[in-house]
Amino acid sequence: MRFTIQRDKLIASVQDVMKAISSRTVIPILTGMKIEVRQHGVTLTGSDSDISIESYIPAEDEDKVYVENIEDGTIVLQAKYFPEIVRKLPEAQVDIVVDEQFNVKITSGKSEFNLNGQSADEYPHLPQVETENSFEMPIDLLKSMIKQTVFAVSTMETRPILTGVNIKLEDQKLVFTATDSHRLAKREVPVTGTNVSIEQVVVPGKSLNELYKILNDSEETVEISVTNNQILFRTEHLNFLSRLLDGNYPETSRLIPDHSKTTIQIKTTPLLRSIERASLLAKEERNNVVKFTSNDDGVIQISSNSPEIGNVEEEVTADEINGENLKISFSSKYMIDALKAIEYDEVVIEFTGAMRPFIICPVENDSILQLILPVRTY
Score class of each variant (00 low, 15 high):
N228L: 08
T192G: 14
K143Y: 06
G193R: 09
V150D: 04
L142Y: 13
E170W: 08
Y212D: 13
G164V: 03
L169R: 01
V191E: 03
Q148K: 15
H182P: 11
I198K: 01
S225Q: 06
N229F: 14
E199L: 11
I167S: 05
E132V: 02
P190N: 12
I146V: 12
K186P: 00
T149H: 03
I198L: 05
S218Y: 11
I161F: 04
Y212E: 03
R187K: 11
M156W: 14
L169V: 02
E188S: 13
R183D: 09
V222C: 09
Q200S: 14
T227W: 00
L141D: 00
S144C: 08
E199T: 11
E170H: 11
L215G: 08
V226F: 01
Q230E: 04
T227I: 07
M145V: 08
A152C: 09
E220I: 09
Q230L: 07
M156P: 05
N228S: 04
L169P: 13
S134G: 13
I198R: 00
D180Y: 15
S197H: 10
K173I: 15
I198P: 02
T177R: 15
L142P: 10
Q230T: 01
V191S: 03
E199P: 14
G193N: 08
Q230I: 01
E210D: 13
T149F: 01
V196E: 11
V189F: 07
S207T: 04
E223D: 08
E210K: 13
A185N: 15
S218M: 12
N229I: 12
N229V: 11
E199I: 13
T192E: 14
Y212V: 06
T221W: 01
V191I: 14
E210C: 01
L215E: 00
N209C: 04
P204N: 10
V153T: 07
L141Y: 12
T192P: 09
E170M: 11
M156G: 08
D217Q: 05
D217K: 03
N216M: 10
L184G: 15
G193Y: 14
G205L: 03
Q148S: 12
G205R: 01
K168N: 05
M137Y: 10
R159F: 03
L142W: 07
F176K: 10
Q200K: 06
A178L: 01
N228F: 12
F135L: 12
S154A: 11
E157C: 14
V165Q: 13
T163I: 06
V150K: 00
N166L: 00
V175E: 06
R159M: 09
P160L: 07
I167R: 03
V153P: 09
N216K: 15
L169E: 04
E170C: 05
T192I: 14
E157V: 12
Q172T: 10
E223A: 02
S197Q: 06
N195Y: 04
A178Q: 07
V203I: 05
T158S: 07
Q172H: 05
P204V: 08
L174V: 14
L211H: 06
S134M: 09
V150F: 08
I139G: 15
S144I: 08
